[in-house]
Design a protein around this nucleic acid. Structure first.
Lengths: 338, 338
DNA sequence: CTGAAAGCGCTTACAG
DNA sequence: CTGAAAGCGCTTACAG
């Protein structure tokens, strides 16, 4: 493994000079810099992140905490965050929680060490008090996508308002009996979105002077399969809703499937709307309220980089960015059968 | 930041003893070990990976090279690899190539340094000669998913055989005029699967005594949108195929959409089959040849861990694991209109 | 503009 | 079973 000494020896300067030249620091003559650069390239020299990290306290890596890498939304956000981070010279350390609470505790408690990362990007989940304490103890910049935590930068949609957009569409079509498919109680603890979207549903109903029946609020776990199961229940409920608002496109896709499976037509017999703008939504002809997913990852990474580039003393207030969502009308929604 | 010295001071032993106790090394009395463990816990001490890495040359991190994090297949493989790696105490460093050749070069050339990772997991892509040279120079264990590289462990499906399974299904239904949707020429350079699947298509046709028309081989880029565009072309071709084999479910989904968009019925007017067992395939009622995706990630991680656990001298031959695929018949395939 | 030297926080023979 | 000390490969005041 070639080290900085090899480069220094080759060029005939000290390691201090090599270090300065390679990192573009001032106080190196242009001629020396060129020779160092050349030698480093010839020798395939790359500074050891461990050694540099030990000397500076910086790791040039940011931790990205993801509930499930394999879900479209998170993959897309990571993809969005990747480019700016990579461009700024940071590596991404992926902390996949994989859904179960035990792994989640282990990841936050032991893997996610401040000695490993310069900053943390938390995707879509609301840290528990314990996790909040751990993250705070890290004493590193944190940015959150899809939730907001006081004191940290965040990028998210307005979940309640987004739910209202979906509901407004259904109400405008003339629906009065509207069901809801959302997360489980546990989802509501871990994630901010489920609760806010449920709130948007309830508020929209009551603003329209409609009452919500308990059997119209079904649990879909934010998966296709869950949405399918939830819709089966809703189809049995009395009275049966004429439209269903699912808090995610994946659940909406499952819901549409359940309706058709029951021999009913979408949207003639039952309308379905989702939230997300999932890449597959178009191919299911799904009406949805789309959010800019990739963009949220990009923005959050940018916020983190801004903080990282600023010295602590000049630190600005954390920014809380809300990105807009927009209704995309396709053909899973229509007026209720009269 | 509490360091090993703080722990040593608290317990009243040397840092060497703390180090040994914490890592479960022998030659520490049980009583001392307990006291060290207790003090470390009290002080929230975590060893600095940079310092440990510098001292040992090990980073306890594995690099995962992914063409696109945001695609279902890769997310699923990463998810599969995550658990065993995490359990073994390794962190995952995500190297997302993001599709473009420039980033790809930069990732392989500069970010993916042997000083950063102990091992590398390469997903689904065939390294170019240049990349091969870089990876080899790393001198770290490498495992590949979805391709095979001489000298390294790999986990994959038999792409040609899998294509033959799909073709056999179409042929058995009585189809003679079968089109193909695959990757671009560039895809075929970067990835192993596209070429092998194309080969399976061609071989199946010629074994059945059928000839392949050039206009029946369309480029779908392994995306839904690409599959859609490819199918539009195939629908214009003369003679028009009665069935289409798409080399991925995503392209197959796009293809089905194009058929319906043209006012034709699937499978009555045209049959479509894919490869993958994509999570959405079921909801499109898509016939496909499913591969165990999560499992391939898990296995590859396991192979890497095996190598990592073995000293170089006792290194075994790299294993090349082929996992089975299976036909899942749904309702996008049927006999040709007579 | 450049270099000698200390220091970052661990691990590891080596000695006892 | 335990400790003193060297060393891993950088960076950074400090001095010149």
């Amino acid at each position: 493994m070639t080290s900085i000494k090899d480069v220094a020896r080759t060029v005939g300067v000290s390691t201090a000079t090599v270090s300065r030249a390679l990192r573009g620091l001032p106080r190196v003559s242009e001629e020396t810099r060129l020779r160092v650069l050349q030698a480093a390239a010839d020798l395939d020299y790359v500074a050891s992140p461990s050694a540099a990290g030990l000397a500076t306290g910086q790791t040039r890596a940011v931790g990205v905490v993801v509930p499930f890498v394999s879900r479209w939304f998170y993959g897309e956000v990571v993809q969005g965050a990747d480019t700016p981070l990579r461009d700024a010279g940071y590596d991404l350390l992926l902390y996949n929680l994989g859904g179960d609470r035990q792994t989640r505790r282990r990841v936050f408690g032991t893997h996610l060490s401040s000695k490993r990362v310069d900053a943390v990007l938390v995707l879509s989940l609301t840290p528990t008090d314990e996790e909040l304490a751990w993250l705070t103890k890290l004493d590193r910049p944190v940015a959150v996508v899809g939730a907001s935590v006081p004191g940290w930068s965040s990028v998210r949609i307005d979940d309640e308002a987004t739910a209202c957009i979906a509901m407004k569409h259904l109400l405008a079509l003339g629906h009065r009996d509207i069901g809801y498919i959302g997360g489980s109680l546990e989802d509501q603890l871990d994630f901010a979105a489920p609760f806010d979207r449920l709130l948007g549903y309830r508020r929209s109903m009551s603003h329209a002077g409609l009452s919500v029946l308990p059997q119209w609020e079904a649990v879909g776990n934010f998966t296709v399969r869950g949405g399918l199961a939830a819709m089966r229940l809703l189809l049995e409920s009395e009275p049966r809703p004429t439209a269903v608002f699912a808090a995610s496109d994946e659940m909406a896709i499952g819901a549409v499937h359940a309706v058709r499976e029951a021999g009913l037509r979408v949207p003639q017999d039952l309308s379905v709307i989702g939230i997300d703008g999932h890449e597959m939504a178009e191919y299911f002809d799904l009406t949805t309220v789309a959010q800019p997913v990739h963009e949220q990852g990009r923005l959050a990474a940018q916020l983190l980089l801004d903080v990282l580039a600023t010295d602590r003393e000049h630190a600005k207030q954390p920014s809380a960015v809300t990105v807009p969502t927009r209704l995309v009308v396709r053909h899973t929604t229509g007026p209720p059968a009269s």
